[in-house]
């Protein structure tokens, strides 16, 4: 047994949001596994509250937000790894 801490490599992602496409269903906010998103207080062009990345560093580029978004308004891209 060693006391060396196990380092796990984790992908890092960047969230992209097209605010004006959003209809505020909040699926992405609810189902983000790392809770990186929240609905913003701002209104978009249609009068809905789009999501915003409140914890952008938490994103692991799992792209569940992309899968859940019925409006094709959010996705993430990989920007490297984090220990």
């Amino acid at each position: 047994m060693t006391d060396k801490p196990v380092s796990v490599k984790r992908a890092r992602g960047k969230v992209h949001i097209l605010d004006d496409r959003c209809k505020g269903c909040a699926f992405c906010v609810e189902f983000c596994p790392v809770k990186a998103l929240a609905l913003s207080l701002e209104f978009n062009k249609k009068g809905y509250h789009p999501p915003q990345a409140v914890k952008p560093d938490a994103c692991t580029n799992c792209n569940l937000c992309f899968m859940y978004c019925p409006e094709f308004a959010i996705w993430s891209t990989k920007i490297g790894d984090k220990e």
């Binding site: 496409r21 209809k23 505020g24 809905y48 899968m67 978004c69 019925p70 094709f72």
Partner: peptide, 18 residues
């Protein structure tokens, strides 16, 4: 053709992603 006609909270867009 976007934006589509589906209501906020509709699941059809989700199936299209899949």
């Amino acid at each position: 053709r976007m934006p589509h006609i589906w209501c906020p909270g509709c699941g059809i867009g989700v199936t299209v992603n899949c």
